[in-house]
Each structure stands twice: as structure tokens, then as C-alpha cells.
């Protein structure tokens, strides 16, 4: 198993954190992992992205040239990464924000209304977890349980109460990716 992913969006959407959760969960499952962010002025208010690799083997280049999966949180990121996804790869798009449709026909695209779902759950900040849930459902890189445990390790002790809603968000994201309708999930 060797999985190369890119997660991209606006700063503040939890893009870098989402990548860290995947990497940390991979570590908890005894995989080799690397996480590398874009940095610099981009970080402040502009777009942010990170590359995450989870592998059974030692990781050579931590740079991801042709991601197997791209988690796209906003439109500029779609423009930046659409052409990079490897043929046959997966693109998970936050369709609550991204209106543009993917033009490529050789990749699998999943529109996830992550923003809308998060809003209905009562916390727009968990949209990234909806995206992550979908990602995990589609790839099986790590288990959702590991991902939630990883989040628990990354966030401070004071914030542990938010784990429940994050878990719920991830579960709904997974179900939507599996084909269930959003409305049926949120009642």
C-alpha cells in the first residue's frame, strides 16, 4: 500500500490539520507517513495545501507529483490540482463552495456538500471532517477510528469535547461518499 494525497483549500478551512490527521492515523497503524505543507505568504489568507503519503514502505520523495487522491476545498485549488491527479485517481470536492465542475473524464469525482452538512450539524468548522470521512470511505487508507484518535492527540486536552461532532461529521461524509443522500442522513 502506498497512498499519495493532496489536500488543498483556503487557509482556515482545516486543510493542513486534515492532512495531519491522516498522517498521524497512519503512524498509529504502523505505516510510514510524511506530511509536507505549502508555506510562506500563501499561508496567510491565501490558499494552503499539503501533501500526505501513507505507505507500507519507507517513503522516498515526500513531494507528491501525481496525487492518487485530491481533497479539494475551494475553487482555486481545483484549478491548481485538477490536472495533477493521476489517471484513475480520485477527486473529492467540497461542492458547497466549489461551483465549477471537473472537466477531466479519467478520474473519479465525488461532490460532497461538506459545508452544508457541517452547517446542519451546527458547526461549519467540521466541514473538513466531512471531507476526511468521504476520503477514508473511498480509500480506506486508515480507519475512521484511527483518524478520530489522531485528532484527539493533535488537539489540546481542553478541546476533547469537540471530538464527538467531528466523528459524526466524518461518519456522514463517509456515508455520502458511499452513495447515501445527504437529506436521508441528516433527516
Amino acid at each position: 500500500m502506498h497512498f499519495e494525497s493532496v489536500i488543498a483549500g483556503f487557509g482556515g478551512q482545516g486543510v493542513l490539520l486534515t492532512g495531519q490527521i491522516i498522517a498521524y492515523a497512519g503512524l498509529m497503524e504502523d505505516k510510514h507517513v510524511s506530511w509536507i505543507p505549502s508555506y510562506g505568504p500563501e499561508m496567510r489568507g491565501g490558499t494552503a495545501n499539503c501533501s500526505v503519503i501513507v505507505s507500507d514502505n519507507k517513503i522516498g520523495s515526500p513531494m507528491v507529483e501525481e496525487p492518487g487522491v485530491a481533497l479539494i476545498f475551494n475553487e482555486p485549488s481545483m484549478e491548481k490540482f485538477e490536472q495533477q491527479v493521476r489517471p484513475g485517481g480520485i477527486m473529492v470536492v467540497n461542492s458547497s463552495i466549489v461551483e465549477k465542475k471537473v472537466s477531466r473524464k479519467d478520474i473519479h469525482v465525488y461532490d460532497i456538500p461538506a459545508g452544508k452538512i457541517a452547517k446542519q450539524l451546527g458547526n461549519e468548522r467540521v466541514a473538513n471532517m466531512v471531507m476526511l470521512g468521504a476520503y477514508l470511505e473511498l480509500t480506506g487508507v486508515v480507519s475512521t477510528e484511527s483518524a478520530i484518535n489522531a485528532l484527539g492527540k493533535i488537539i489540546s486536552k481542553k478541546k476533547q469535547s469537540i471530538l464527538e461532532i467531528n466523528k459524526k461529521a466524518a461518519e456522514i461524509g463517509a456515508s455520502v461518499a458511499a452513495g447515501y443522500s445527504v437529506d436521508s442522513l441528516l433527516g
Partner: peptide
Amino acid sequence: DGAMGQMMEA
């Protein structure tokens, strides 16, 4: 280098 400084690994 900058990449290594910013990178996370086990």
C-alpha cells in the same frame, strides 16, 4: 532546508 523543516514525519 525549508522542506525538511516544514515536513512532518514519525
